[in-house]
Every structure is written in C-alpha cells, then in structure tokens.
Computed example of a mutant assay.
Amino acid sequence: MAEVKPAAQALESALALLAAGAVVAIPTETVYGLAGDATNGEAVARIFEAKGRPRFNPLIAHVASMAMAEGIADFDPLSRLLAGKFWPGPLTLVLPLRAGAGIHPLVTAGLDTIALRMPRGFASGLIAALGRPLAAPSANRSGRVSATTAAAVAEDLGDRIRLVVDGGPAPVGVESTIVKVEDGRLRLLRPGGLTAGEIEAAAGIAVERQAGAAIEAPGMMLSHYAPGAAVRLDATDVRGGEALLAFGPRRAGGSEGAVAIKNLSARGDLREAAANLFSFLKDLDRHGADTIAVEPIPFDGLGEAINDRLKRAAAPRDGADANGN
C-alpha cells in the first residue's frame, strides 16, 4: 500500500520517486493529482496504467514558472494576459506545443497543442525542485470521483502507487477551468474552479461555449467523475432506496426516507459546494444506495462547473465512455 506522508516531510521522497520514473499523488488547490515526469514516456505510461485511462485523452502539464511554460508552448497575447492574471491558480490554457519542448507525446495524445497549468503550494515547489513539468491528472481511477483528500487517494489508488503526499483538503475542490484562445476567440473547453465571468472580466471578451466538441483537453468525455451508484439529477423528490446529495436550506420531497444525506452547502454557497462535491459523492456512495438523487443546483458562477461534473457523473457508462480527469 502507498505511504501517506505530510507535505512538510514529503519533498525528498517525492523527488526521488519522480526522478526514477515513478508516479506520486500530490495535493493541488483544485484536486489531488497523480503526477509523473511529463518528459518521461515510462512515467506518463504509469499514470495511464494506475488510472486505467484511455490513451486518447490528453493530460495537463503542470509548470512552476512562466519561463518553464514558455519553453513548452507558444503564448498569444490574450493567453499571456490570462496567465499573468490567474497563474498560479485553477486555470489551464491550451496552447500550441513548441517544437523540441521535450513533452512526451503520450501527454498530448497526439495533438499539436498542450494543456498547461501553474499550480500553487507543494506542487509548485516540487516541480521547481525537479526542474521539469509534471503531467498530473486527478488522482483517482479513470472515470471515478476525483479525490480532494489524501485519504480518498489512498482508498482508491493505494494499491497502485507508492506515495501519497498529504496537503490537507483541496481548497477549490473541482478541477481547473480549461480555455483555449483561437483566432481571437476565447473558448471554454471545461468549466472549473475559475468562473467564466472572472475570465471574461480579465479578457475583455466573451467566453464561448461549444457543445459536442472533439476532445481537445482533459475532462471532455461524456461519462466522467462517476460514483458506483447511478446519479439522478435535478431531483425534486427522493425515491425508495436513494441517497440524497442536497443543496441549500430546503429539501426535496421524501428526503426523510433517504438512505443518507449530504448537503453540499446548507446556505447555498456555490464555492462551498464545489469544495465538497467529490468527497460528498464518495461518502454517499459508501452507503450502498443504487442511486444518488441530486437536488437542483444553480448554473451561476461555479455552478456551471458543478453541474458539468454532475452531468458527466450521470451519463450512461460503458467501456468506451470510461476516462480520467
């Protein structure tokens, strides 16, 4: 089983494993990541192996500085502006990959673009100490609920990896927002921990949504973030044998008969709800209900990212739909 070490004591152990081509679960401000050297094909393959992730779904490469990012990708003026405003933080930019950048092709899934993010905290220090970018999808088995605590990582992946770095609960609680600048347009590829409104305010142009787009970045497949139980959205009642994922001060009809109840935010705060989403889904799943009913959640602000994750968790599941984060 994986060793779980506090972040304050884990830097040397994590560096040694990464330098040897192993993978390490690390905390970030969004969710926990399963990190490997993005320039090492064997390390990247171990990420896919541990997650059971399809090879055609690209990974995010995490950097510690703009100098490192500029060695990997070509920045247009708008992407540079957004990086200056929101890095380090929960924003991923999809950019043209530089020739000779050294990123292994498994990271980009054969695309000529690269998804880049600059995280905060332990992850940033680890990347800087390693001197190379880290590919780091969420630290969970492919298609399952993302981990926001070290304990959740150890429960899901503890038999597949050697080290989990414990940095406490992830403060944002959902993955990064992914955007791409193309022909002067700003496209939202995945909603996340940075709202579209915040991005629009910084960019000075609208963020465009595009339904049914081809896979250009992580988190774009239909079935994703799924617990073992089925997920029923926009529930106004609770049916026999269901668990309830609640939101706000008022309950769905029949909630007193729920197998279990977790309220994302009793006061209706979307930021609190985002931080609780994955851990509460996992907790409800442990109660053995066949279905988790989810009360309606507003689409405003971070509600867009929360509803995106829930829609993917509720999507039909089969072998073709499974993917990672």
Rank of each mutant, 00 (worst) to 15 (best):
G254V: 10
V231H: 00
P77Q: 13
A203H: 01
I127P: 04
P296H: 09
A64D: 15
A293C: 13
S279F: 05
V63C: 12
F56G: 07
R317Y: 07
E242D: 11
A45H: 14
S138F: 08
D76W: 06
G71H: 05
R250D: 15
R232Q: 14
R239V: 02
I26A: 15
W87L: 13
A214G: 12
E175W: 13
Q210Y: 08
A260S: 12
G212S: 05
A83V: 03
A123R: 04
L126T: 13
I292L: 06
G219S: 07
R46F: 09
S79R: 03
L106H: 11
A313L: 04
R271S: 15
Q9W: 04
S79V: 13
L106E: 10
N140I: 08
G192K: 02
A252H: 00
R209D: 10
P218Q: 07
E200C: 02
P77L: 14
L91W: 05
G254M: 14
L157N: 04
P88K: 06
A109D: 10
G125F: 11
L189R: 05
L81T: 12
P90D: 09
R286V: 01
P316Q: 09
G131R: 08
P119W: 04
P137G: 10
A217V: 04
P137I: 05
V44Q: 08
A226K: 02
S265M: 07
A69T: 03
Q210C: 15
P227M: 01
E182Q: 12
I292K: 05
F278I: 05
